[in-house]
Simulated assay, not measured.
Amino acid sequence: MLILPSRRQFLTGLGAGAGLVAATGVYAFDVEPLHRLVVTRYAPALPRWNPELRLRVAVLADFHVCEPFMPFDRVAEIVDATNALKPDLVLMLGDYPAGRIAWRRLPLAEFARLAEGLKAPLGVHAILGNHDWWDDEQVQRARAGTPAVKRLLEDRGIPVLENGAVRLAKDGHPFWLAGLADQQPFYGLETGLEDLPGTLALITDDAPVLLMAHEPYIFPEVPERVALTLAGHTHGGQVRLFGRSPAIRRVRGIDVSYGHVVADGRHMIVSGGFGVSRMPVRLGVPPEIVLLDLGARA
C-alpha cells in the first residue's frame, strides 16, 4: 500500500531541503573560497626523475587578486603559509589579476611586493596566464607586447619564464625548470604564444625537466622527456563533486581538470589554485597550496 506523506511532513521536508540548499550556497560562496586554505601534497614516482634528487616544490596558481574574493591580507596569508612549508623552490603558475569578476581591482604592484616575500633557496619562478594578458588593455589592443605584471614581478626578483628554461641544482644534482608562454593570451582568439619544441630545445643535457604551463591543455603534446608538467588555470572546475569537474573539457580523452594526471607514462599535476573567475564560487575544491616532494623515499 502506498503511503503518502502528510502536508506537515511534506512542508517539513521542503523546508529542510531549502535549508540545505541555502547552507550549501553560503559555504560555496563564502566559506570555501574565502576562508579555507589547504596544503595538497604529492610524492609522485616519476620515471624520468633522478631518485637522488630530493626536491620540495611549492606550487601557487591562480591568485586572481581583487576585492572581495582575494584581498591582500589573503595573499599575505598564502605567502606565510607557503614559507612555513620550507620549500626548496616556489613556482607561480600565472593568473595574478582577477578579470571581470572583480568588485574592486587591486594594484598588481602591491601583489608583486607581497610575492617578493616568498622564500626558497632555489628561488621563486613564475609564468603568465591568460588573465595576465586579458587584464592588460594595452597588449589586448595591440595583440602584442608584454603584460605589465611580468615587469612588476621581475622588478621584485621573480623571473618570469616565457618559452624559456633555466638549469638549477639541489645538493649537486641538476634539473631543468622550463616555462611556456600562455596558450590563450588574446581574448577571443585561438592563437597561443607557447613554443613547446623551442623551449625544450634549450635543454642541453639529460637532467630531469619540470615544465610549467598555465593551461593544462597542452599536456597531450608534452613528450616523455619531461619528468613532470605543472599546470593551473582550471581551478579544479571550481565545483568538483564525486571526483569530477563537469565544467572542464577533456583533451583527447584525458581528464585534465585537476590533480595528478597520468597518460602514456607521462605525468602532470593540475593545481586547483586559489581564486575564482566567471562565478565567485568554489565547492569541493578548496583553495590550495600544492606541495611536491620529488625523489622522496618511503
Rank of each mutant, 00 (worst) to 15 (best):
Q138G: 01
M268A: 14
V251M: 10
R104W: 09
V281C: 03
L106G: 05
V65M: 13
P68R: 08
E224I: 00
L122Y: 04
A84K: 09
L228I: 05
V160Q: 07
L241K: 03
R167W: 01
Q238C: 10
I203L: 09
L93W: 02
I289E: 07
P87V: 03
T24Q: 05
D132R: 08
A58I: 00
H214E: 03
G243H: 07
V222G: 00
F175V: 06
V262E: 14
Q238P: 11
E194S: 14
A102N: 06
L283R: 09
S271E: 06
F69H: 15
A28D: 11
A98Q: 10
F274G: 01
P71H: 04
Q184G: 01
Y27A: 04
I254H: 06
V149C: 04
V209N: 03
P71W: 06
D255L: 09
D88C: 00
D136T: 10
L34V: 11
H131K: 09
G94V: 03
G198D: 03
P51K: 05
A181K: 04
G157R: 08
L128N: 02
V57K: 07
L114M: 13
F69D: 14
L128M: 09
A109T: 14
A169M: 02
E110A: 10
E215D: 14
R141A: 15
D135F: 13
F69S: 11
H64I: 12
P33Y: 08
I254K: 08
L108H: 12
A247C: 01
G13A: 15
L168Y: 01
A98T: 00
F111T: 15
M279P: 00
A76M: 11
R113V: 13
T146A: 10
D206C: 00
T234L: 01
K150E: 12
A201S: 14
